[in-house]
Each structure stands twice: as structure tokens, then as C-alpha cells.
């Protein structure tokens, strides 16, 4: 039986030597003592296996370098140029980055993106966690509910966008009809600068909660029963079990969920573009919409690339901060 919960934590790194191609030779090496010829054969087998593994990986690595690393590198390079698509790019040093610092639309779009992120990430996380907790118990009804909650994930973005546009229609929408029935004021939703961000946040939350619920649910179900039973035997209430046993063990999964949500929120584009095109009066005009417009509407590829680099840097820094926070928290535990 493990002596500490840490030993079996989900997401813990595997033990040394458990990697690809090391298991079989290691077992063989622990067998009866062999002569120099056998050792040479073992060494040769291991080299061959490693070579096969690397050859299998080679096309993917080349693909990654070519289709991921190279475009990223090119985006950085293009960020230092003035490129209008039709003429050759001109190197202009840091001008695009300096312009970014003084561009009020960049600042405003970034501000809206951050507002979207700080609203979206905690809401989706808390809803997903709450639903995962409620649906942990294995029962037929829970399976049905899990399926229902997961359904929005399977729905196409376009269908979801259109559905929610109807639901949130200021005049004929079901949501306003319900507000009216409850004698609450009807909202203009996407038709008002005050509520437009909310009208794009609600569908985004609705569409994502099911997916992250499944991930957190898997994390919760991975928690060894022994700890929960031990805590219950010691007199802990179900709430205390969640607070002091399950949630600490869920930290690596939570970290993954929060990081993925943050990255997704900072890169939000499709759904907002489908629903509002950044309007009204730029109330939902996020940074990625701004980058897209600069690149594809105005042909300012250099400036758009520079903003993409800035967004990448922001995501990278935020991920590092989150990583440090979770690690520090883990150490404290």
C-alpha cells in the first residue's frame, strides 16, 4: 500500500527506466548471468529498437518542425517586417512592436480578451468541477446526465452560434421571454455594448463545460478509493473528503484544465465571429479578431504577425505563472 498520496497521484511522472524500449531489455538484463556474446546481442537489440523507434518518430518530428515550428519562427520573422501581401516584405526592425504599444485598438482588444478570459476560465472550471462532483457516482441516471451535459461539445460551432442567437434574440428570444415571465427586465444581449460580452460568454461556457467535466470526472475517479475510505473511517464528512482528499489530488488535472481553458480563451475567435463579428460597436472585438482583420482585411501581415507573437508571449508567460503557482502549491501540500 502506498505510504503517501503523492506516490499514486494522477499525472505523476513515470519511474525512471519505464520509457519506450527499455522494459524488455531491462528484464532480460536482470535474468541469469550471461557471457560477453549475450551482452553484445542485448546491446545490439537495444540499439536496433531505439533506431526503429526514432525512425518511426522521424516523419512526425519532421512534420512538426515543418508545419509547427517553422511557421512559428516565420511569424516571428514576419513580425519584424512591413508586408502587404502584394510586395516583398521589408525589414522594419521593432516598428510593429512599438506601434502596438501606442495602438489604442490593440490595447482595447487585448483588454476585452482578458475580460473574456477572467470571466470564462473560472466559470467553466467551477461549473465543470461542480458537475463532475455531482456525477461521480456510477449509476444509470448519472450516465444519462453525463451524456446530456456532453452533448453541446459534439454540436458544431455554427449550429451552437445560431441556436444561441435565437435564444438570446432581444425580441423573440426564449431567454427574454423567461425574464419577462419572471417580471425581470429584458436584455438587449448582443444588441447592446453592455451585454454583448455576456451574450458570447454564455454559449462559450455552455459549449465547454461538458468536455472539461469529463476530464475532471476522470481525475476524480482516479483518486484511490483507499484514501476516501480512510478519511470516511476517520469521521470526515463527504464535503471534507472533497476539500481535503479529492481536490488536492486533483491538482494536476485542474492545472491542465485551467491552462487549456486560459489558452482557449485568449485565442477565442470562431464563436464570437459567428455571433457578433466583434460588434456591436466593438464590444466583443477580441485580440484574435483584430489580428485576423489586420491580416486578412487590411493585408498588414507584418503587424498582424507581431501581434500574434505578443499574444503567444502572453499565453506563454501566463502558462509559466500558472505552472509555478501549481507547483508551489503542490510543494506546500
Amino acid at each position: 500500500m502506498p505510504t503517501s498520496p503523492r506516490a499514486n497521484k494522477p499525472g505523476s511522472p513515470p519511474e525512471k527506466g519505464a520509457g519506450l524500449g527499455s522494459g524488455a531489455p531491462a528484464e532480460r538484463a536482470r535474468g541469469p548471468v550471461r557471457g560477453p556474446a549475450s551482452i553484445r546481442t542485448v546491446d545490439r537489440d537495444r540499439r536496433e529498437q531505439a533506431l526503429v523507434a526514432y525512425l518511426f518518430l522521424l516523419p512526425d518530428v519532421v512534420g512538426l518542425l515543418f508545419f509547427l515550428a517553422l511557421p512559428m519562427l516565420l511569424a516571428v520573422v514576419i513580425g519584424f517586417t512591413n508586408w502587404n501581401v502584394v510586395t516583398a516584405p521589408q525589414f522594419i526592425g521593432l516598428q510593429n512592436f512599438i506601434r502596438m504599444a501606442t495602438d489604442p485598438l490593440f490595447a482595447a482588444s487585448l483588454g476585452r480578451t482578458l475580460l473574456y478570459t477572467v470571466s470564462f476560465v473560472p466559470t467553466v472550471y467551477l461549473f465543470s468541477l461542480g458537475m463532475a462532483v455531482l456525477l461521480t457516482r456510477r449509476s444509470r441516471s448519472n450516465v444519462i446526465f453525463r451524456t446530456i451535459y456532453f452533448m453541446p461539445v459534439a454540436m458544431s460551432l455554427l449550429v451552437a452560434g445560431v441556436t444561441w442567437r435565437f435564444l438570446l434574440d432581444p425580441n423573440a428570444g426564449l431567454v427574454n421571454m423567461l425574464l419577462g415571465a419572471l417580471h425581470l427586465p429584458k436584455l438587449q444581449w448582443a444588441g447592446s455594448v453592455q451585454t454583448a460580452m455576456l451574450s458570447v460568454l454564455i454559449p462559450a461556457i455552455w459549449k465547454n463545460v461538458g468536455y472539461f467535466m469529463i476530464i475532471l470526472l476522470a481525475g476524480i475517479q482516479d483518486v484511490p478509493r483507499e484514501y476516501i475510505e480512510a478519511a470516511l473511517l476517520d469521521g470526515a464528512s463527504p464535503l471534507q473528503v472533497y476539500r481535503h482528499v479529492i481536490l488536492p489530488l486533483l491538482k494536476p488535472v485542474s492545472f491542465f484544465v485551467v491552462v487549456i481553458l486560459t489558452i482557449g480563451a485568449l485565442q477565442t475567435f470562431d464563436q464570437i465571429y459567428v455571433m457578433t463579428r466583434g460588434g456591436p460597436a466593438y464590444a466583443t472585438h477580441t485580440l484574435l479578431i483584430y489580428i485576423y482583420e489586420k491580416a486578412f482585411k487590411e493585408w498588414k501581415l507584418g503587424y498582424a504577425a507581431a501581434m500574434s507573437v505578443a499574444l503567444f508571449a502572453l499565453i506563454f508567460i501566463l502558462t509559466l505563472i500558472q505552472m509555478r503557482y501549481f507547483r508551489a502549491d503542490e510543494r506546500r501540500d
Binding site: 536496433e48 526503429v52 525512425l55 518511426f56 518518430l57 522521424l58 516523419p59 512526425d60
Partner: peptide, 21 residues
């Protein structure tokens, strides 16, 4: 002496490449 089997070595990149096509 054990005969070296080159087949996996040759097959590996081909299979991997085809799977991505």
C-alpha cells in the same frame, strides 16, 4: 550468427509517413 532483420527499419518511416498522408 543471427541474421539482421532490416525490414522493420525500412518499414518504420514508410508506415509512419503513410499514416499521416
Amino acid at each position: 550468427m543471427k541474421k539482421r532483420n532490416w525490414f522493420p527499419l525500412l518499414l518504420a518511416p514508410l508506415v509512419s509517413l503513410l499514416s499521416g498522408l
